[in-house]
Design a protein around this nucleic acid. Structure first.
Lengths: 149, 149
DNA sequence: GAAGCTGAGTTGGTATTTCCAAGTTAGCAT
DNA sequence: ATGCTAACTTGGAAATACCAACTCAGCTTC
């Protein structure tokens, strides 16, 4: 809970928010439309104290937002919705899914990425500034000038 | 260590291999050229027993391979090298890095993705079968026929 | 051929996380 | 006022992680 020092590695900073057990799966559920505590709990089978902790972390990090709502004749509650930052994780989850499909295959077949409009298959890949795919081997991770040696 | 049941979620299957503490960072180090136990230990600051465990998990999962080598006048050892499956994680790490740069910025500036050849900036994105970028909102996760309800 | 050095771990004890079951709380309905 | 339900809390046991110290194998040096 206490952040000791800011790490220059962007991956490590992402993992400070996302790297705990269950967190990615909570985000996946949110992405597929789950918004309520009990539903996260039921679909994931996660312990309630852990779920509370993960939801709080994600809300604090700006991945989820708490949104109040009230059904007729019920008391006011709040739901958890993805923010823009949360929606940006779609490509991370897509990459994880693609890797799992390829390298940890499921006996009953893969879960695929498709384009909503026409159902054509999609992949996650590196693209240049014109949106054209670049092969994996052409990619370099560059540190800006400010980056410490 | 004991896998209880095969989950149909590809993300969850990926995380069975990658989801423990330190694992992504070990892969990042491997991707940036680290191959030896002591070097992983020094750059990450991870406890040796945990590192042993993570390296074993990654080797068993086919992400890393142990490769024997011998320097002149030194005894034989083994190094850890990324396999093809491990190299395929580049896009996952790229996505994590991109998200961290954008949503958990570092005070001294981002670490960017660039094309090796000309240094032009790159992103991780969804692409169709012709390698053309598709906006995030057009992406759907599809379950194949075999997928249980 | 004994002693030292070094990389790659192992071991043992403590601290932190996670898990599970049971309990609590707030507001609406009866 | 009593019951119901979603959304948590709490307490204790189990699993993980952390840290320091130790081992072990083979090479080199004496």
């Amino acid at each position: 809970m206490i952040e000791v020092m800011e790490t220059p590695c962007s991956i490590a900073r992402s993992l400070e928010v996302l790297g705990e057990r269950w967190t990615f799966l909570v985000v996946r559920e949110a992405m597929s439309g789950t918004t309520r505590f009990a539903d996260f709990r039921a679909t994931l089978g996660v312990a309630p104290d852990i779920l509370t902790n993960r939801l709080n972390t994600l809300v604090e990090a700006g991945v989820l937002e708490r949104r109040p709502y009230q059904e007729e004749g019920k008391r006011a509650r709040h739901e958890y919705h993805l923010t823009e930052a949360g929606a940006d994780l779609r490509v991370v989850l897509g990459a994880l899914q693609q890797w799992g499909d390829e390298h940890r295959p499921y006996s009953l077949g893969p879960t695929l990425l498709r384009r909503s409009a026409d159902g054509r298959p999609l992949r996650v890949a590196f693209v240049d500034d014109e949106g054209r795919e670049v092969p994996r081997s052409d990619v370099r991770f560059v540190r800006t000038a400010a980056y410490p040696a």
